[in-house]
Structure formats: structure tokens, C-alpha cells
Design a protein around this nucleic acid. Structure first.
Lengths: 130, 130
DNA sequence: GACAAAAGATACTAATATGGTATCATTAAA
DNA sequence: TTTAATGATACCATATTAGTATCTTTTGTC
């Protein structure tokens, strides 16, 4: 089980790098700095700029930079972009089969764990990471 | 991301069912009770008895029952059986690429979250779930 | 002893998610 | 006009999880 996937991990590294530079940086530069495959990095950067996390500049001399302060870029946001909704589990039995959905102890326990994870994740942003 | 997979989920349900019954129960009975596909359930039960969580009885009139008290069957154990080692992430960059493994803030944060998850998971056993 | 009903062992297939590549179009500075 | 960048999009590869199929072994019952 992975809390954080490669996508997210690479995205975070790229964002940290950009946060430190505070200038327009090209994909090839990020690739060199981080050692991530070029086309994969590009895909990640594209996604981040679609999501307005990054601002992109096309054409020669173009590249990417952060679209908002590092303090306002939260880990949870990045995880949601690359991993979808971050939930620890769902109930695998259909409602009509599982007779005690409301009373299911496991469900409640997992939810409690989930809450504590969220709480901790919410406090992480790019500024914290650099 | 799933903390608990289907395998584990079904295993837990089967174990809870067995804990409540306290007698030898056949795979077909569990299938009826839980609505899980027969061959899949059997595979899970086989695994649980290989791991000495269940005791099995072959031949006509055979089946499965718990091999130890419900209080001693921990969720973590079941998760490890079906999901391998339960870790929230690894560092995706190789050590020689990632220059600041020791100082990596993300790594530390994830570890802290992991610890709190473990702490909560360790308190869950079959007795708690029924 | 034959039969039936159970689990044991094992190999295979299917679905899904993740990771990664390739290609062509568009933009804009030099 | 060329070149170096991103945008869009379609595709392929791999690993994990989910699920099936089949044959063997055991054991109670008639």
C-alpha cells in the first residue's frame, strides 16, 4: 500500500525545486535536476499547470513557475490530482449484502484512522517541505 | 489508495463469522453468509489455515474454525498476510540520486503519519470487531 | 468398499491502476 | 524562419489485485 505514488512524489519534488528557484524553469532542467524520465515529467508538469498549480510559458525561453505561494500549495491537493480522492478504503460488500453497514466496527475504526491521517496531511504544504 | 484490500476485508468477515459461531463451518456456508465468490473464499480460507489463523478439517463434515481466541487475531497480521508489509510509502528516487535522504522532510512527515496509523491498527483484533 | 462432501494444491485468466512513451500541434523568442 | 519550449492526446508496459478452474487428498456415511 502506498500513501503517495510516484506521480505525486515527482510532482512534489518538481514543486519544491521551483519554489526554491523562483524563476521560470524548463522541463529539461527539472529532468536534469531530479532524474525523472523526460516525457513522464512533462506529463506531470502539464497536469499541474492545467490545475493552476503552475503557470506555464510556451515558446522558446518558456517553462514553468509556481502560480501561487509555496505556503498555499497543499500536499492533499497534489495527492487528489494524481491519486484521486484519498480514502483509506471502501466497504467491499454491496449495501444490500452487508447487513450492518451502520454498525460495522471495522468501518468506524478505519474512518477514525483516516481522520487522523487527513489531519496530519493537511498541515503539509510545499513551504513546509523545503 | 486502499488501506485494506478485498482479500483482507473478506478474510476479516469470515473470521468474524467464525468467531461468532464457535464451531466448524464449511466454505459453502461462509459463502452463503457473506456473498463472496466460492473459489475466492476458498483461496482465502486456505491461506488463513496455512498461516495457522484457522484450523481446518478435511473430508465430509469438515470445515474451518478459529485456531486461537478472537482477541489474539490482529488486523495487522491479516493485512500482512494478504497485503505484504504495510508501509505507507518508499522514497521513489534511488539513494544516489536523492541527495537529501536523511534530511527529507516529506519522508519524516510520512513516517510520523505511518506511526500513528500503525498505533491505531495494532489495537484492532477480531474480538474488537464483533 | 463406494460414494459424497469437504479441504489442499496449484496454475491460470481478468481487471485495474500505475508508470511510462510517442507523436504531432501550437506558441513565441531570437 | 528557425528553434526551443509547452499543449494535447493517444498509446503501451508492468504490477497488483481479483477471481476461476481443475485435480488431488481426506474422511464420514451408506
Amino acid at each position: 500500500m502506498k500513501l503517495i505514488t510516484r506521480n505525486t512524489d515527482y510532482a512534489l519534488r518538481a514543486l519544491c525545486h521551483l519554489a526554491k528557484q523562483d524563476k521560470v524553469v524548463t522541463a529539461p532542467e527539472l529532468v536534469r535536476a531530479l532524474g525523472v524520465p523526460h516525457p513522464f515529467m512533462r506529463k506531470i508538469l502539464q497536469r499541474l499547470s492545467q490545475e493552476k498549480i503552475l503557470k506555464s510559458y510556451k515558446g522558446q525561453g518558456g517553462g514553468f513557475k509556481l502560480n501561487k505561494p509555496a505556503e498555499e500549495i497543499y500536499l492533499m491537493r497534489i495527492m487528489r490530482i494524481f491519486q484521486g480522492n484519498v480514502g483509506l478504503n471502501g466497504c467491499f460488500l454491496k449495501k444490500d449484502i452487508c447487513p450492518n453497514k451502520g454498525r460495522c466496527v471495522l468501518r468506524k475504526k478505519i474512518h477514525a484512522i483516516e481522520d487522523s491521517v487527513y489531519k496530519q496531511l493537511r498541515e503539509i504544504n510545499i513551504a513546509v517541505l523545503i
